[in-house]
């Protein structure tokens, strides 16, 4: 746990169109922020399968479909939708203030790891 973890202003909400995702690179980290019709969710931007850019995937409900090979992930939990694919995505707490999206970059967690941290 470093002091740098914490809420970071990313971009204005209108920069992410409804039902689409956009990538943002901060240092070595690349995240994908999705706009689920006004609700914003953030995950790491690399599919655990072959590293596909999830930001470019089609959104279905609360899940995103990787554009490379069609793996589905729940954007809230980071869990894969199909049980046959056990790898999870890291999810980042996200909130909106004054039309600006803030992401807690330090608090990224993969499902099930939170308790151990």
């Amino acid at each position: 746990m470093t002091t740098e973890r914490g809420w970071t202003k990313i971009t204005r909400t209108e920069n992410i169109p409804p039902r689409e995702g956009r990538p943002v690179r901060i240092g070595d980290l690349e995240i994908a922020i999705f706009n689920l019709n006004g609700r914003f969710l953030t995950v790491e931007n690399a599919c655990p399968h072959k590293g596909g850019p999830l930001c470019d995937g089609i959104v279905t409900g609360h899940a995103v479909v990787c554009p490379l090979h069609g793996r589905h992930f729940d954007l809230e939990s980071g869990m894969p939708i199909r049980a046959s694919d056990p790898a999870c995505l890291a999810v980042f707490p996200t909130r909106v203030e004054d039309g600006i999206i803030l992401v807690d970059l330090g608090a990224g967690a993969r499902f099930g790891e939170e308790a151990a941290a």
Binding site: E4, T8, K9, I10, I26, E44, A90, G106
Partner: peptide, 24 residues
């Protein structure tokens, strides 16, 4: 078709220390 169709979004604040190794 929208302002960020091709544009790479730059974060408003930079916190370059945060790396993937620091997850969790």
């Amino acid at each position: 078709s929208n302002p960020t169709q091709f544009v790479q979004i730059e974060p408003m604040e930079m916190k370059p220390e945060v790396t993937e190794g620091q997850l969790v």
